[in-house]
């Protein structure tokens, strides 16, 4: 069944995520990124950031808390068995540090029905505890029919 375009603009409740130092290290190792900015406390303390920072793509870790409710949205009724990640766009602002508290909101910005597939895009915006932007992402998913 086609995704109803009336859901364009639908917003989801924001989620607040506290960035853990060890979670950053776990993520960095998982992506095989051994940059000392992410892994070495002493190096990080002497860096211009003064502490461990998150890799830019860590944005998808806290961003995921806004994608899950879209996937589970019974109104949208996405066919998850046929869903694939089509495109990803990330725009980075202030660097995310260990201990930051990131609040993220999301809304559906695009729905398109084609003959053999549907496309849905979700915009995710994150701010830190100072109210400053840290990341804006667009997740585009394709649902084959």
């Amino acid at each position: 069944m086609a995704i109803d375009a009336k859901f364009i603009g639908k917003a989801y409740p924001s989620y607040t995520y506290e960035v853990g130092r060890e979670k950053i290290k776990e993520y960095a190792k998982a992506i095989k990124n051994f940059d000392p900015h992410y892994l070495e406390d002493d190096f990080a303390a002497k860096s211009k950031y003064g502490t461990i920072i998150a890799p830019p793509t860590f944005a998808v870790v806290y961003g995921a808390y806004l994608i899950e409710p879209v996937f589970n949205d019974r109104d949208l009724n996405l066919n998850m068995a046929m869903l694939v990640h089509g495109e990803q766009e990330l725009e980075f602002f202030e660097v995310v540090k260990a201990g930051d508290v990131i609040t993220t909101g999301a809304k559906i910005v695009h729905i398109q029905n084609k003959e053999k597939l549907d496309i849905i895009a979700i915009e995710v915006q994150s701010k830190n505890q100072h109210g400053r932007d840290v990341c804006r992402g667009i997740y585009t998913f394709v649902v084959r029919k």
Partner: peptide, 10 residues
């Protein structure tokens, strides 16, 4: 410097 990356898409 990881902080220099400002945009990424694919």
């Amino acid at each position: 410097d990881p902080g220099k990356l400002k945009r990424l898409k694919c």
